[in-house]
Amino acid sequence: MKITFLHNEEELLWQRFKAGDSGALGQLSRRHYRALFNYAAKFTKDREIVRDCIQDLFLELWERREHLTETPFVRIYLIKSLRNNLFRKLRQERWMLESEDLDEDLPFSDHTSAESTLIESELFHENEGKIKAVLAKLPKRQQEIIFLKFYEGLSNNQIAEILTMNRQSVANLLHRALTSLKTNWFSLAKMMLFFWANVK
């Protein structure tokens, strides 16, 4: 019952989008906005660029809506398109080094480590900052995979598709990321235990 209902609602929303209902655009984009933002924000400190890229992505779909046959409002598709747009834009804005290989040179989140020392009095934020700092020590590729796995909840296959690499390499990198997290684990786990005890 529930599933058919959801399906109908989805269908209806998509029909409204195609018919040019801007409210439907709002609803569809809201579902993905946060995840896309969190993803893109890992590549640049400039939130303005992130916002613009996501807006352009959705506006582009809006303008093409009459020619679309299937819904592009699918997480994987959106992440992949956003990734391409963002890299193109970052290249234009000369935020990057002059290298051919994008993936090696894009900075993946190193801006969260120092921020969270002074301001936050609350334990939660302080710990979040520490976790971010530990994460930031990983190579960018591994950070990205950790994000796609643990935040987006994607399968290795899906991650492989986004990063255009094979599934086995994703699995290997994921394993390597977790192993190197473990070397920092002693401090991290202790800190999180402390945190856990306080939450409960």
Binding site: N38, N127, E128, I131, K132, F150, Y151, L188, M192
Partner: peptide, 8 residues
């Protein structure tokens, strides 16, 4: 932790 550290 790995989930919540991603919020921006």
């Amino acid at each position: 932790a790995l989930y919540h550290a991603q919020e921006e």
